[in-house]
C-alpha cells in the first residue's frame, strides 16, 4: 500500500478533500486462477469530484470496466480486490472504504448512494417485469414509501429522462422498447433514489450515433440539474471530449495519465494518449488541400495480454520514446503540470 506504517492512522474523512466524492488509491483487483493471477487492475488511483464527470478511457483489457465493478463491489468470481482503498463520502458525510465495506452496508450503498448503468440495458432490466414495477421496486427497497408514492416517483423518473408518453410506458415491458428507450429506462432506474455518484460503463457504445447524442445530452442535463458526479467508462475519445471534466487514461491495468479534459487533448503527456489521438481520423488534419489523404499514424502492435505483461512499462513494446530504463522497471505517476499526472519517465519529450 502507498502509505507506510509510520504514518499515523487518521479518520478516513480527513483523507478526502471536501470537493471529492470518490478517491481510489492504489487499487488492486486480481483474477486468481490456480497459481496464476491476472492483475486486471494494478495500482489504480483516481479521483471523482463532486458534480463532475471523470471519464475512464481505455482499450480492451485496460481494466476500465473491472475498476468500475470493483467500486460497486460487483466483481464476478474469481475477481477480488487484493489491495488499495476506495474512499467514498456517504450522504451523511461519513467516509467509507468501499474496498473493505461489508456486504450489508454495500447493499444499502448500491442504488441509493452509487448507481451503475451498463452498455447493454437488458443485463440490468428484468424482462419479466414492467419498467414501472422495476423502478418502484428500486424506490421501495431504499425508501419507506407506499406503492402509490413509488409509482408516482417512477412516472416522474420516466419523465425526467424524457421518455415520450411516460404514463403508458410505465406498464410496458423492456422488450417493447427500442435500445435508446431501454437505455433511458436504465438511467431512470439508476437515478430513482437520487444517487450522488453514477457509474456509467460504455452506456452509449451499443447505440446509433443519433441516439448516442440524445443520451449524452440527457446525462449532461441530469448532472446539471441533480448535481451528481459521474464516472464514465468508455473506449471512445470523441465521447470523452463531449462529456468529461477530468480524464483518466488506462492501459494494461494502470492509469497512465490523468488530467482535465482540455489539458489532456491539448497537451497529452503520455505517448499512449498521444498515439491514441493520432489514430483517430480527422478530416481537417488528414486531408491535403488537393483532397489526397495522409496515412494515419498508428500505434504499432496490439494491446498486451494481462497474463503476459512486460516487466517494465507495459506500453514500452509499442512506444516510440522507449529507452532501456523503461523496460527495466515500471514508471511511477509523475506530475506533468497542474493537476496533470503521467506514468511516463520521458514525458518531458512530449
Amino acid at each position: 500500500m502507498a502509505h507506510s506504517a509510520a504514518v499515523p492512522v487518521r479518520p478516513e474523512a480527513a483523507m478526502l478533500a471536501d470537493d471529492v466524492m470518490l478517491k481510489a488509491d492504489d487499487l488492486q483487483t486480481h483474477f486468481i486462477m490456480g497459481s496464476r493471477a491476472a492483475k486486471s487492475v494494478d495500482g489504480v488511483s483516481l479521483t471523482v469530484r463532486r458534480g463532475e464527470t471523470l471519464a475512464v478511457v481505455g482499450e480492451s483489457g485496460s481494466g476500465k470496466s473491472v475498476t468500475s465493478l470493483s467500486i460497486m463491489r460487483l466483481l464476478a468470481h474469481p475477481g477480488r480486490i487484493v489491495g488499495g482503498r476506495i474512499l467514498y463520502r456517504l450522504r451523511d458525510g461519513t467516509v467509507v472504504d468501499l474496498a473493505t465495506t461489508g456486504q450489508k452496508l454495500m447493499r444499502s450503498i448500491r442504488g441509493r448512494e452509487i448507481a451503475m448503468i451498463f452498455q447493454e440495458p437488458m443485463t440490468s432490466l428484468n424482462p419479466l417485469f414492467t419498467v414501472g414495477d422495476q423502478i418502484m421496486e428500486m424506490v421501495r427497497l431504499h425508501e419507506p414509501v407506499s406503492r402509490n408514492e413509488a409509482r408516482a416517483r417512477a412516472l416522474e423518473m420516466l419523465e425526467l429522462v424524457e421518455i415520450p408518453a411516460a404514463a403508458k410506458r410505465l406498464d410496458q415491458y423492456p422488450h417493447e422498447m427500442s435500445g435508446g428507450m431501454r437505455q433511458r429506462v436504465m438511467i431512470a432506474l439508476a437515478l430513482a433514489c437520487r444517487p450522488a455518484l453514477l457509474i456509467a460503463d460504455e452506456p452509449t457504445t451499443a447505440l446509433d450515433v443519433t441516439i448516442q447524442a440524445q443520451i449524452l445530452d440527457l446525462m449532461r442535463r441530469l448532472q446539471r440539474e441533480i448535481g451528481m458526479s459521474i464516472l464514465f467508462v468508455t473506449h471512445n475519445l470523441g465521447v470523452v471530449a463531449e462529456i468529461a471534466h477530468e480524464v483518466a487514461v488506462m492501459y494494461a491495468g494502470r492509469v497512465v495519465e490523468q488530467a482535465s479534459v482540455t489539458d489532456l487533448f491539448a497537451r497529452p503527456k503520455h505517448p499512449y494518449t498521444k498515439g491514441l489521438l493520432a489514430c483517430i481520423p480527422d478530416p481537417k488534419r488528414d486531408r491535403a488541400t488537393d483532397g489526397s489523404r495522409r496515412m494515419l499514424d498508428p500505434i504499432p502492435g496490439s494491446v498486451p495480454s494481462i497474463m503476459a505483461l512486460p516487466r517494465g512499462c507495459s506500453f514500452a513494446p509499442r512506444c516510440p520514446l522507449v529507452e532501456p530504463a523503461c523496460e527495466a522497471e515500471p514508471p511511477v505517476l509523475e506530475r506533468a503540470g497542474v493537476n496533470h499526472l503521467t506514468r511516463c519517465r520521458r514525458h518531458e519529450l512530449l
Binding site: 450515433v209 443519433t210 448516442q212 447524442a213 440524445q214 449524452l216 445530452d217 471512445n236 475519445l237 470523441g238 465521447v239 470523452v240 471530449a241 463531449e242 468529461a244 479534459v261 482540455t262 487533448f265 491539448a266 489521438l277 483517430i280 480527422d282
Partner: peptide
C-alpha cells in the same frame, strides 16, 4: 452528432 475528439470544438447541436 459524431463525437469529435476535441473538447474545444463548439458545434451546432443538432440532436434528432
Amino acid at each position: 452528432t459524431a463525437p469529435i475528439p476535441d473538447p474545444t470544438v463548439k458545434r451546432e447541436r443538432v440532436i434528432l
